[in-house]
Design a protein around this nucleic acid. Structure first.
Lengths: 221, 221
DNA sequence: CTTTACCTGACACTGACCTGAACGCGGCTA
DNA sequence: TAGCCGCGTTCAGGTCAGTGTCAGGTAAAG
């Protein structure tokens, strides 16, 4: 799926872009309405993620122009919790959905893949890694055929690994998955969750890279 | 697809009817709520296009009655640009979408075929899950042979589960089923409905996945 | 050997969740 | 018109799994 991300906050934009790319979609990220305008003229997007407060104007102006131009691509609005009127107006202006900042990356994934599913009638994407079978939408894991139960936090971490198996994830990247961006944490929480995941998924499933981070190890069978 | 068009403006009604017929759907066109009432009792429509200002009453009264009667056919509201409050109320009353007059016929086509797409691939209206037998068209459920009565809201939730048994549904996905898109809800309504469904369908029918959502458990037989 | 980084069992507390009960409202009946 | 009923929603009180912190231990690096 081709996704256009219109968002001027750098940290958030990066995180969203990476998440969507990891989910297997092509992302174009622009920071202004001007570039957004140009992009939709050049490309037929399957989904548009639209922030409302942008340096060169309000997202709703863009949305209305898009609709009157006959573009009916699904639009998901990214908005702050207190801007209720914006949200209502957004839906009236032709948005399909909205996400309230700060949002979980997994919530974002869910919304995006809901759109993707509607567009091509896809079943759940199932990933096989070593002796694990993972259903991403359903948050379900089987290890050697046995179901494995993960808590919300454990899943958040694990999802980060499974999306890029074999790739090194730094501590702070993992922390971002737990505490919607920003929130600094000074403790060994990540270590604890890695430990818990190892207990559930096998002790060699996650490899420590000293001083750098962790990586999911693909092994077996 | 069977479409019911409720619209008292002659010119517009004709144009819409013709467009939908051209798209390959069967259209019934009525001009009053009275006839609309009679029609939905006689026929199971797959989509209802509903004007709000009608000679014998307001379309929302009709919509509410429809929903409390357990009819969950998708409804698209046809409304004028300046009636924002009507639109919001409409979504809250259980409409699925809306179109602002005057609208392009191509826009209409797009929305209608979006509904059609969602409706297709559902050829088997009777589903067996564990000790439940569910008739999707009739909204009828039997548990171990005994009929189970669900209210409109309970059904809305349950339908989400039954369409893809075993899948995890997040709180917000369930909320979307109750309140078209939009309407923010800050309460435990979902929990209450889950609780009531459990009482009617068996306490182990719906499993809580803490921090993530709920899932219908397929068990027995 | 010392230092640093990481591991993991244990534990207290928070907040997510459950559910009986009460409220409010629209629709139906008399 | 008044009264009743069913449904949707909110509230309050209770329960318990999940989370984060800590402390004592182990492994790696130099």
């Amino acid at each position: 799926m081709r996704v256009l991300l219109v968002e001027d906050t750098i940290g958030l934009g990066e995180a969203v872009r990476d998440q969507i790319a990891d989910d297997g979609h092509a992302v174009d990220w622009v920071q202004t309405l001007g570039f957004a305008d140009a992009s939709v003229k050049a490309t037929a997007y399957d989904l548009i993620l639209l922030d409302l407060m942008l340096p060169d104007g309000h997202g709703l102006t863009f949305l209305r122009k898009l609709r009157t131009a006959g573009n009916s691509a699904p639009v998901i609005i990214l908005t702050a919790r207190d801007q209720v009127s914006d949200r209502v107006e957004g839906l009236n202006a032709g948005a399909d959905d909205y996400l309230i900042k700060p949002f979980d990356l997994s919530e974002l994934s869910a919304r995006v893949s809901a759109v993707a599913r509607r567009y091509r009638g896809n079943p759940n994407p199932i990933i096989h890694v070593g002796n694990l079978v993972v259903d991403l939408n359903d948050h379900r894991i089987h290890r050697n055929g046995q179901p494995v139960e993960l808590t919300a936090r454990e899943w958040a971490i694990f999802e980060g690994f499974i999306q890029r198996p074999g790739i090194l994830l730094s501590r702070s990247q993992l922390e971002d998955r737990l505490y919607a961006f920003g929130a600094e944490i000074e403790s060994n929480t990540i270590e604890v969750y890695v430990s818990r995941l190892r207990k559930k998924l096998g002790h060699d499933a996650i490899v420590t890279v000293r001083g750098m981070g962790y990586r999911l190890e693909i092994h077996g069978q």
